[in-house]
Amino acid sequence: MNGLPKVKINVNNDGLGQVAQTEDGVSAMILTGTSVSGGAQVGESFQVFSLDEAEAAGITSTANPYAYKHVQQFYQEAGNGAELWLMLVADAVSMEDMVSSDENYAKKLLDDAKGAVRLIAVSRKSDGSATIANGVDADVDNAVVKAQALIESYADKYKEASVIIDGKDFNGTVADLKDYSTSDQEFVSILLSNTDGSKNAAVGLLLGRLAKDPVMRNPGRVKSGSLPAIEGFFTNEQAIEELENAWDNIHNKGYIFLRSFVGRSGYFFNDAPTCTVASDDLNNITRVRTIYKARRVAYGVFVNEILDEIPLEANGKIAPALIKSWEGLVDNAINLTMTQNGEISAVRTFIDPAQDVLATNEVRVSLDILPVGYAKYITVELGFTTSLS
């Protein structure tokens, strides 16, 4: 390990072998809009904590109706007090450019927020002239690739975030949709639904549900209650119910959309997949949020130990007392901030006493997180019987 003395924590994403708002829910949206005199300016980021504050900045139903719709849905779910960073961009700006590390949109917003943003959504208002590729606007997949690259560049700085891309202008042909379960963009998800029958996804609604929940909570959790919507659509302007026979197929391809349940009123999100393979531990937004929260907590503990003295035994190995101390510090920090809140099931820290810190000037730590499980599939064997004894 070279360069400045530092803590480096690598995230292992194949360990599972899978086939009220906190700072974890700080959110951001980049949306099509126009500058307002004395208020929001195109290309400039700003922070609000309520719909009223957004309106005071010019995000109103008259001055910026498209952005207003998304911000309104965000606060319907997240509630007043939720921290939201916003940036308006001209209608010519693609989502690919919004999230590109070569452009000053998402990059500028993340920098302005000083690493606080954990969830970010981008949406370009559909004008009906999209070039379709993979069943949606070609801009969607381009944005997925650029968003992954952008967040990867911030992850090493402990400023990672999950990105929601508007799956706009769906052509209605499920077979055309790209199968993102074969991709490797674990920081990015695509939303394919809305509540108003338009060609844009309700990114503010999904962002609001994620923002108000703890990191481990799936936005599709039925016990969380239905969404504030009386209708649900795909972004081809088609009602959710009209494609019910294709729900499984769309789900298996890694998209987020609205669904309903027989006997239960309202609409719910189907799940929170990310654009990556099923064998990747980070194939869901909940897993991404959970592991990176643990990473930030561990960083907060270990950064305090940079360049501290390491007492050694006569054999040159790390003193057991120090090992126990460090292991305890990390376990306690993660247990207090995550385990006790039900965000993970357990944590285990291990420091190998046999490592040669004199030769390497490096202390290697193994940090294992046992996540919570999810009742995604419930199978009941039901039948008649001649006796219950």
Rank of each mutant, 00 (worst) to 15 (best):
I190A: 04
R296T: 09
P320C: 03
N194R: 11
A20K: 08
D356E: 09
G342E: 12
L207F: 10
G266H: 02
G373Y: 10
T60K: 10
A346T: 07
R118I: 03
R221Q: 13
R289A: 07
A272I: 01
S27N: 03
T131Y: 10
G58E: 07
G300S: 08
S366T: 09
G300M: 09
P219M: 08
A149W: 00
V145C: 06
S183K: 12
H251K: 15
A121C: 09
V11P: 14
T34H: 13
K159Y: 14
L192E: 07
G225R: 03
A333Q: 08
T235A: 13
N171M: 05
S193H: 04
T385E: 09
Q355W: 10
D156Q: 12
S189G: 12
K146Q: 12
F261Y: 15
L227S: 02
E44G: 00
S366D: 14
N283E: 06
K69A: 15
G167A: 09
N12W: 03
C275Q: 02
P311Q: 04
D102W: 08
A78P: 00
A314T: 15
Y299T: 01
I9G: 14
L84W: 08
G266A: 03
V36T: 14
E231A: 12
E160N: 13
Q73D: 11
A375C: 06
G135P: 01
R124V: 01
V203N: 02
